[in-house]
Design a protein around this nucleic acid. Structure first.
Ligand SMILES: NC(=O)c1ccc[n+]([C@@H]2O[C@H](COP(=O)([O-])OP(=O)(O)OC[C@H]3O[C@@H](n4cnc5c(N)ncnc54)[C@H](O)[C@@H]3O)[C@@H](O)[C@H]2O)c1
Ligand SMILES: NC(=O)c1ccc[n+]([C@@H]2O[C@H](COP(=O)([O-])OP(=O)(O)OC[C@H]3O[C@@H](n4cnc5c(N)ncnc54)[C@H](O)[C@@H]3O)[C@@H](O)[C@H]2O)c1
Lengths: 210, 210
DNA sequence: AGTTTTTTGTTATTTTTTTCACAATAAAAT
DNA sequence: ATTTTATTGTGAAAAAAATAACAAAAAACT
């Protein structure tokens, strides 16, 4: 059983689909419902579940509440996770304003920036000077951080975060970050994804005529 | 030769790494330099290049300028691509303010929103009423669009975009979009990525003791 | 009660992707 | 001019992931 990023991503998607099905009033679900909701094959759903010992009833499908609970446990939804943001620019501000994290047990607790003009402690989420990051993270044992600073600053910010005890990073800077082997880094590169969409639109136009 | 999303993503990464190397004054590059910059094995780099007929010189590596040009052609960097944004909220505004797209030949030309309070034609990028999307897109033959509206509105917005002629989507709404087979959709799901980071941080803590 | 139908859970198969391995070759060194 | 060294380009091998296949089991039906 190899822990595979795509597999965990699928678990999150199953969980989100289950929330929706539950809201729609469903009580049980079959692997092909989930497959359809997420865009994979039913055998993939059952394979993923099997990997984590998630079981249903033959001919009876899966109980949605139980499945949500089990997936929640696997994905760490049983506790609230505190997360810091570094960089109070366009992206950092968008994240701080976003209301959707709370329901997922993700709690953005503070932001840090080098620009004094961005710093504010009054209303909304506090934005502290970068120098205060280390103490804050250590004191509150924050493990997860988001990097939303320009690419040239990203590695240096990461190094500070690592020294403070951060173990997992969501990185928006379009640069490959270097860190110890046990550091978890997921990258979101908007330009790359757009460029990729453009490539495939062109590629399809070429192959499918017109 | 199967066109594979990850492979194209790697081509973009190689291209970005080459920009940096060029700025640093390098003229030629070896597969292991690129591999290191991007975080893959040298054989992967050569395999990718081989798939697209990109060649270098045995023992001489690759000429950076030539490689940038070739990758640029493959990735459609020879022309400027017009892109529209739908949803002038947190994410939409962050994207509109972002200066980095221009250098990549990506031109965000307009935004559309249903909320009259968000609409403005004066300074900066124009934000038009949603009803004007179809005409705008048809008239300018825009092919690519970004969805930055709440999840409940995303599918309905997509349908409008498709009817207007949009062929490729970058979607920020945490929902699976349905469209015709030849529609290209890349999703950016920030919560999912964060949840994933959290999972692996916890998983590592469990396996590696402490 | 027995038969049919449906859906799981898991093993086997296939496909895809990555990695290896090495001959071909060009530059550098002798 | 010959030898050594370094690096590509690609076909073969290995690894990983996805898909299919199907026996086991449980519900529904007769
Ligand atoms: N905004 C977008 O839509 C977008 C799109 C694609 C990629 N990105 C990437 O996301 C990242 C953030 O983009 P943005 O548009 O929010 O940038 P931004 O310039 O709006 O904000 C960056 C913030 O980081 C702060 N900062 C700079 N150096 C710092 C440091 N060493 N420590 C702490 N704070 C520091 C700045 O003061 C600023 O507030 C960038 O790497 C960018 O390339 C953004
Ligand atoms: N902001 C974030 O950091 C963040 C994080 C994770 C996911 N997301 C996702 O990104 C999307 C956008 O998030 P946001 O924070 O920018 O939302 P937002 O609420 O700030 O903005 C949404 C905008 O879309 C507009 N809108 C609503 N329905 C519309 C319609 N039918 N047609 C056109 N415009 C419409 C609204 O008027 C608003 O301006 C959402 O799907 C959200 O779940 C955002």
């Amino acid at each position: 059983m190899t822990i595979n990023k795509n597999c965990i991503i699928r678990l999150s998607r199953y969980k989100n689909a289950l929330y929706r099905l539950k809201n729609l009033g469903f009580v049980k679900v079959f692997s092909d419902n989930l497959a359809d909701a997420v865009g994979v094959l039913p055998s993939q759903v059952r394979k993923d579940f099997s990997l984590f010992g998630l079981t249903g009833n033959r001919r009876g499908g899966y109980n949605i509440d139980e499945l949500i609970e089990s997936l929640g446990n696997i994905l760490g939804k049983d506790k609230v996770h505190e997360v810091i943001v570094v960089g109070a620019g366009n992206i950092g501000t968008a994240l701080m304003n976003y209301k959707g994290f709370e329901q997922e047990g993700i709690n953005l607790v503070a932001c840090f920036d080098i620009d004094p003009a961005k710093q504010k402690k009054a209303s909304g989420m506090p934005v502290f000077p970068l120098e205060e990051l280390k103490d804050f993270v250590k004191q509150r044992s924050v493990r997860i951080g988001i990097i939303a600073v320009p690419d040239i600053a990203a590695q240096q910010v990461l190094d500070i975060m690592i020294s403070a005890g951060i173990k997992g990073i969501l990185n928006f800077a379009p640069i490959r970050l270097r860190g110890p082997e046990d550091l978890v880094v997921n990258n979101i590169n908007v330009e790359l994804e757009l460029e990729n969409v453009i490539y495939f639109v062109n590629a399809l136009r070429k192959t499918r005529g017109k």
